[in-house]
Design a protein around this nucleic acid. Structure first.
Length: 571
RNA sequence: GCGCCUGUAGCUCAGCUGGAUAGAGCAACGGACUUCUAAUCCGUAGGCCGCAGGUUCGAAUCCUGCCAGGCGCGCCA
């Protein structure tokens, strides 16, 4: 691929810098970084390279900048370069100097912004992993949308992302689930029951109970002993919940490459083998844990147990792998799971967790270090909590009372595109106040319609052109240098910035940048649209503007596609 | 008590890993549709960037200490 104008300019500057610092250790030579100045008077590009160089060369920055400018060979599109402020080099381009990009965009179409890299790094991305004990709530939805967009984004930038969902279908919670279903089944048979404190109260449990009774005889369960009855009902209930979860995920356009069952880890003895291996490696010893800090512990009684030496690998305290009854802890299964990912060839794993699991990161990474030697694996992204409101009034949600709003209810009310886009408009580190009415509103309060409207508007113009029998000139014959208005220049700069933005977003695991970018791009377009009439008598200018519109629509669509949001051609 | 996240305009948030005069949207005020979609645009006003120190040519950004909010801290997942 040919070098972009930006890259040619920074290369030209880098050559001079390298020559000036020929004596200096190559690894210490600072890299030239072109930025887009905020002030128009500061030119099209600005470089601060003279400042870090000043220290190395023991000259003042403005003097260094002069030396650089005296030697540099800029590409033709550069009009002028001057020194400003403490030592910035401001570069001004010739009018229409960057407009060739429009032709490149049209040629690359949906691959504009993407890196074709056939041997990209394989990454295992685990997200959602909502427990199969009930429906997904909005918090899961945020993690799901962010994870899916991150997968799309990283795939677009050359990684090979494997999307995985970990099903926690083992452990005591499944027993609680099974018992809850059994109680409801009895209730449906007219048997009087008392619903205990810890059981799951939600109505979906009744639905599951009805489903089971519809296909199987109540008496056949009654005949079973407690253990096998709960075992069977647990499996049925997990399957029912997972079917519901998968259907909810489909409704917001999310598909996983793999669903991984925790239960299979136990059944294949991977967990016990893991413990044996750690024992053999002398990483487990008998000890007593100190009492937990920070809350009243009434019933704390210290017990001797076998502990994994995670503190040797960066953890705060050593961790037990087995409960007193001998069964494995969740932690034991989870490290067996991550070790399994490693064995499947993934040296790079990303997990997306809710903020309430933040305290868990250190111990998993410590365990992985002990097992594989890998540092900081898995890479964990914490998604902060979602506060659901309607017209600013928070919902009173209680799992115990069974009054929580599910993700599918929200998606049904608000719509997939609005849910997905809104969840992408903030950094994951900030808590999200999600207002149902605001997300539903088809007005300026709602960014998703703002950007979709821009796309639809462009297509309205293109339809109008078609209706007036305007033939689109061959792209190579269009004179893009006619696009000199301020609004056109701003729009073109936004289009040029797209690949760099994706690169930053992928490297920093920040897919929200795509949403922020699309909003800015849409704003640049709307502004252009108001001041620059497209369909007009000046044939050459009209063709150039039509090209600009087509390129803009293409980039909006490319970006929305990464977010899993549709780009309608009319609204 | 300890750990992680957050604190920027009245509200919701950006600020491109240290750069030039801190930016958007909403709300407020004033304008723009006989012309390609007004779900739009243009303008005005609004800021001790939580507080206090420090690092340097230069700090919303990095370091330290406070303050406030969220999440978490037994073999629950």
């Amino acid at each position: 691929m040919k070098l972009s104008l930006k890259d040619s300019i920074s290369q030209a500057l880098q050559d001079v810098v390298n020559a000036l610092l020929a004596e200096v250790d190559a690894t210490k030579i600072p890299a030239v970084v072109l930025t887009r100045p905020k002030q128009k008077e500061h030119g099209d590009y600005a470089v601060n390279i003279a400042m870090p160089l000043a220290g190395l060369l023991k000259q003042n920055p403005r003097q260094v900048a002069e030396t650089i400018l005296a030697k540099v060979q800029f590409p033709d599109a550069v009009d002028s370069a001057d020194i400003a402020g403490p030592g910035f080099i401001n570069i001004k381009l010739k009018a229409g100097g960057e407009t060739d990009i429009l032709k490149d965009i049209m040629q690359m179409a949906e691959s504009y912004g993407r890196l074709d890299n056939n041997n990209g790094e394989a990454v295992n991305l685990e997200f959602v992993s909502a427990n199969p004990t009930g429906p997904m709530h909005v918090g899961h939805g945020r993690g799901a949308v962010v994870g899916d967009a991150l997968a799309n984004l990283m795939n677009a930038r050359g990684y090979k992302v494997h999307k995985e969902y970990y099903i926690n279908d083992a452990g005591s919670q499944i027993g609680v689930l099974a018992n809850s279903v059994w109680l409801r089944m009895q209730e449906l048979q007219g048997i009087k029951i008392t619903f205990p404190e810890g059981a799951y109260p939600g109505d979906y449990i009744i639905e599951i109970a009805k489903e089971i009774l519809a296909s199987q005889d109540f008496a056949s369960f009654e005949a079973l002993d407690d253990v096998s009855r709960l075992q069977q009902l647990g499996e049925l209930a997990v399957n029912a919940n997972m079917a519901m979860i998968r259907s909810d995920l489909t409704d917001i356009g999310i598909e996983f490459d793999q669903y991984f069952s925790e239960k299979t880890l136990h059944e294949s003895n991977k967990v016990t083998q893991l413990i044996e291996k750690l024992e053999a490696d002398d990483l487990i010893y008998t000890g007593t844990l100190p009492p937990p800090k920070g809350k009243e512990v009434v019933d704390y009684n210290p017990v001797k147990q076998r502990l994994f030496r995670t503190t040797d690998f960066g953890d705060d305290v050593d961790r037990p792998l087995q409960k007193q009854d001998g069964t494995a802890t969740y932690f034991a299964a989870d490290i067996a799971y991550h070790a399994d990912k490693f064995e499947r060839g993934f040296k790079h794993m990303i997990d997306i967790w809710g903020a309430d699991h933040g305290g868990y990161i250190t111990r998993v990474q410590a365990a992985m270090k002990a097992l594989t030697g890998l540092e900081k694996q898995p890479e964990v992204l914490l998604v902060q909590m979602v506060n659901l409101t309607r017209d600013g009034v928070p919902f009173k949600m209680s799992k115990r009372a069974g009054t929580f709003v599910t993700l599918s209810e929200v998606v049904e009310e608000v719509g997939k595109d609005a849910v997905r886009f809104n969840f992408m408009t903030r950094r994951i580190e900030s808590q999200f106040d999600f207002d149902l009415e605001a997300a539903k509103a088809k007005d300026a309060e709602n960014p998703v319609y703002y950007v979709q409207y821009a796309h639809a508007r462009i297509h309205a113009v293109l339809r109008k052109a078609e209706a007036e029998n305007i033939r689109l000139t061959d792209i190579k014959d269009i004179d893009t240098s006619l696009l000199t208005s301020d609004e056109a220049s701003k729009l073109i700069k936004m289009l040029i910035a797209y690949p760099d933005m994706l690169d930053t977003a992928a490297n920093r695991r920040e897919p929200y940048r795509i949403a922020t970018y699309i909003m800015q791009l849409a704003a640049a377009f709307h502004s252009f649209y108001h001041k620059n009439r497209v369909i007009m008598d000046d044939e050459a200018l009209m063709q150039a503007r039509l090209l600009l519109l087509r390129a803009t629509a293409q980039v909006i669509k490319n970006a929305l596609t990464l977010l899993g949001v549709s780009a309608p051609e009319s609204m």
